[in-house]
Design a protein around this nucleic acid. Structure first.
Lengths: 339, 339
DNA sequence: TATTTTAATGTAAACGTTTACATAACTTAG
DNA sequence: CTAAGTTATGTAAACGTTTACATTAAAATA
């Protein structure tokens, strides 16, 4: 590996001068600058990041902590983050942890080792983060994605799950469905809980059937949506619509309806949440809520970078809520069809 | 940020002793060790990675270069890699690049900046990597995933696309389909090309219709599968089966069949490739080829780590080909049904 | 041309670790 | 109790940068 010393020697200047050329700071005589630049290219010299990090206390790297489930969700968001950071010459260090304890350890390591300048935490299952937040406070800027955390001096980006869920239930009720079941995504998932909350509130607001047996727990997989639907259709009276907390479960629900020889949407309306790319290609095309994952990622990257360039004292506590749009297709039994 | 100096001072020892405790190397008197350890915990001291990297010339970090498309594919593989590396206390630095030039620059930066100890390159579209390989040679160990590269002293992990595609075509022909169309995934994608090659060879081997108009180009999206199918069904005579190079396009094909009022599989058999999680929940359930993405990632991580622990001189050129298994469901018109 | 001012370059310390080598503190043996 | 042998600890250089400060070279002025 070639170092700044090799360059300096070959160019017959001091390392200071090479450094100045590299950072095109100060005044360097054009002739010298050219000579040094040529040699840098000649030797394919790239400054050692460890030395840089040590000296500057900045690494141009941001950490990204994510859950080891929900692959689809995750990778889209990450692409959004990455694209923005890449443009701004920053790298991403990723880590996924199983449980909360492991996670806190990881974060601690990231932050205190001088490895990163900023952190994005995507942990829908996060609950008790007291210790963590104290850690972070004033160390480096943090962006939380879909976490229920009141951390001062950080950014939190949330989806407007609650209102969209309400809206979806409202839409179903307008279509005459009064007995709407809900397949939950998991108690420990923030998005799932919010969607559920929207469902519950909408039921009472729009005077729908509020019986408890219309709610069943799933885990965001097709299989769980399938099982949940089989269970739900044994209720008496059976639901006339099913709202699954994500598209995967809705797909399982559609398959279950097929097995039960129920026509969707005639006998049973089914709607999902997420708007995965193939939702439009299902039979029937799935009514769902569109979630702009790439944009979410982009916002996260942008907000983080902005805060990284700010004095700790200037940082603010920010909460960004991304509004979501229902996408009406056939599976809800609606006449209209949107793009 | 607390440093080894703070610890040393507080424990009234030299930094050397603290270092020895940290690396539990050498002999340190138990009493001293305890005292130092206590203070390390007390101060929540984490060694600075930049200083470590500078000194040790190892960063416990591996780079991961991936394409900015194929989110699903990518994130599963990454999870596989991550899980293995996390266990072995290594971090992952990711980067995705748009074009080849940008990519080579990224790799160059990664490698020559002392940022990483190993590199995993996932670039199905990679073609001409001469310059790159020369770069890498003997610098750090590399694993290529789904790249058509003959790089000495590195590991290449490939899917057995070719044989599985052949097998799938064979299966269709056994079911009496003689006019099998193919929806290509993209000329610049290694996996897509290999699947196509398998299709072509199978056609001639099993004496099927070899007309060129049975091949159409797609781009791995549902929409392209949809369009491709509409086009294919205008052929005269029309194909009796469609082999899509991935599941997303197969889903588009199924939707197209629906629009054309064709029954699948009765009028038209449709098969895909990948076995995404919802393939089993489609109507009809999709016959496809299962690709063990997590395992692929795991293998990549394992192989890389192994090579990182080897002397450059001891490294070998390795090529791992992962065999794939067809998953027979309803969409091909087969009687049998597999798990 | 000699002197002052300004611009370019060099020197060396600092960042936070590890580690070879030097030294100090114990043990053990005589 | 001293000398020799161990074992534990300390000192300081090294890793590859940046940068404050010192120095030298060039330009401007008298």
């Amino acid at each position: 590996m070639t170092t700044i010393n090799d360059v300096a020697k070959k160019a017959k200047v001091s390392t200071a001068t090479v450094s100045r050329v590299l950072n095109n700071s100060d005044k360097v005589r054009p002739a010298t600058r050219d000579r040094v630049s040529t040699i840098i290219k000649e030797l394919n010299f790239v400054p050692n990041v460890n030395a840089l990090g040590l000296q500057r206390k900045k690494t141009k790297t941001v950490g990204l902590i994510f859950p080891d489930a929900s692959a689809h969700y995750f990778s889209e968001i990450m692409q959004g983050i990455n694209r923005h950071l890449f443009k701004n010459d920053h790298q991403i260090l990723i880590s996924s942890a199983h449980d909360e304890e492991e996670e806190i350890k990881t974060i601690n390591g990231f932050v205190n080792s001088g490895r990163i300048d900023g952190l994005i935490i995507m942990m829908p299952s996060a609950r008790d983060y007291k210790g963590l937040i104290d850690q972070l406070k004033n160390e480096i800027p943090v962006v939380f994605i879909a976490c229920e955390i009141d951390a001062p001096y950080s950014t939190t980006i949330l989806l407007d799950n609650y209102n969209s869920a309400k809206e979806m239930v409202h839409h179903l009720s307008q279509l005459g469905r009064k007995r709407i079941a809900f397949i939950h995504g998991g108690e420990h998932n923030y998005d799932a809980r919010e969607r559920h909350r929207g469902y519950i509130d909408a039921r009472s607001e729009y005077q729908l059937d509020e019986s408890e047996e219309l709610e069943v727990m799933g885990n965001f997989t097709e299989a769980s949506g399938f099982q949940a639907t089989l269970a739900l259709m044994k209720r008496n009276p059976a639901p006339t619509a099913i709202f699954a907390a994500n598209d995967a479960m809705a797909i399982g629900a559609i398959e279950a309806a097929r097995v039960l020889k129920l026509s969707v949407p005639a006998d049973l309306a089914i709607v999902g949440f997420d708007d995965i790319s193939l939702a439009a290609y299902l039979d029937p095309a799935l009514t769902t809520v569109h979630v702009p994952l790439r944009r979410l990622g982009h916002l996260a990257g942008e907000s983080l970078l902005k805060n990284m360039n700010l004095d700790p004292a200037e940082r603010t506590t920010e909460k960004i809520i991304i509004p979501l749009k229902p996408v009406i297709r056939r599976s809800c039994g609606s006449e209209q069809e949107s793009a």
